[in-house]
């Protein structure tokens, strides 16, 4: 009788790794053949995708429903304006620092929020984001209600307008890659298994010795760090920040939720496909203003009710394709996938 082993890899997955590298190479080379407007759009997409990956990790895997991620996006945005702008510190360390600052803020925030349950956590996180907004709007150093402009002199040190666009794109791409990689590695680790166990049955996971709250907290901090870096790079691109744009729930949370719901909650690939769909819809329909937003609301509700696993879940259930393999196959040794 032959032995069995557990593997995540099925045959076609040997092709996935090289294909991903190829895509990544093409994305890095993007400034070579894309114009400034395209780069800006791509930068925005990378930022949204990173936020969506993290929100998916929070809600889809850890069962943490936050609708206050704009707190950390805004904090990161303001951090970069203070660090790289006012203080003139080097750009890339400043972006990383923005992430660290956001995560540091997430510690006391999490300490309070994790006392709240499910749905109450959601609104509590929103209250926290409102507090961030109101305090920022009271702070003269942060430009109070009218906000800050990035100092032109400092912006010029990043190069000419199209060089800047390329630089910001690479940073945003790096943040997105870091988000996907950490989420993927996290989910494949023993902590990831714990996360999935938590999602499926919290009390059972606790019974198995999984520290539920600590695991959730860790994901929350990671998500805050990524959100801070995304805020940093996206507001760098805008060169302006104000309290209402920095802590905008529609921009930084509602859109992200839409992306995750459309793409598929609980699937890393869902965030990617959701981002593409969202930006596709936006480019064609955004001119319709309120009607466009109402349509997004309707689509999200219909998806939630009729296709709760999202587009990628729909594809996965029919084909079994995964870009980031999570499922474990039991394979008889000496044979491939049966």
């Amino acid at each position: 009788m032959s032995g069995y082993s557990i593997t995540r890899i099925s045959r076609y997955h040997y092709a996935v790794g090289p294909a991903l590298l190829l895509v990544l190479a093409a994305l890095i080379a993007l400034p070579g053949f894309a114009d400034k407007a395209t780069l800006r759009l791509a930068t925005e997409m990378a930022g949204y995708m990173a936020l969506a990956i993290m929100w998916n990790l929070l809600a889809g895997y850890a069962g943490v429903m936050s609708i206050g991620q704009q707190a950390f996006v805004g904090a990161g945005g303001y951090a970069i304006f203070m660090l790289a702008g006012s203080a003139g510190l080097p750009l890339i360390p400043s972006v990383v620092a923005a992430g660290v600052i956001a995560a540091a803020l997430a510690i006391p925030v999490g300490y309070i929020l994790f006392r709240l349950n499910g749905a109450y956590f959601a609104i509590g996180s929103w209250v926290i984001a409102e507090i961030f907004l109101l305090i920022t709007a009271q702070s003269d150093r942060l430009g109070a209600g009218s906000g800050l402009s990035f100092p032109t002199a400092v912006a010029k040190t990043f190069g000419k307008s199209d060089e800047r666009a390329a630089l910001f794109w690479w940073i945003a791409l790096a943040v997105a890659v870091v988000a996907i990689a950490t989420a993927y590695l996290w989910l494949r680790s023993s902590r990831g298994l714990a996360l999935t166990a938590m999602r499926d049955d919290e009390s059972a996971a606790a019974g198995l010795g999984v520290d539920v709250v600590r695991n959730k907290f860790a994901v929350f901090l990671l998500a805050a760090a990524i959100a801070g870096m995304v805020g940093a790079v996206l507001f760098l691109g805008k060169l302006r920040i104000s309290p209402t744009s920095a802590y905008d729930i529609n921009e930084w949370t509602a859109s992200i939720i839409f992306i995750v719901v459309i793409g598929g909650i609980g699937r890393l690939e869902g965030a990617i496909i959701g981002t593409l769909v969202f930006f596709g819809l936006r480019s064609y329909l955004a001119d319709f203003g309120s009607y466009y937003l109402m349509a997004l609301g309707v689509i999200a509700i219909v998806m939630m009710l009729k296709m709760p696993k999202g587009l990628w879940g729909f594809v996965y259930d029919r084909t079994g394709i995964e870009i980031f393999p999570m499922r474990r196959n039991i394979v008889r040794s000496g044979e491939g996938r049966p």
């Binding site: 429903m65 509602a254 939720i257 909650i265 203003g289 937003l293 109402m294 509700i301």
Partner: peptide
């Protein structure tokens, strides 16, 4: 807890924009 939250969030966006319209 996710479906009711997301659906009511969707209703919220629909109501706001419908009223705006």
């Amino acid at each position: 807890v996710l479906p009711p939250l997301l659906v009511t969030f969707g209703i919220s966006i629909i109501l706001q924009n419908g009223l705006l319209q």
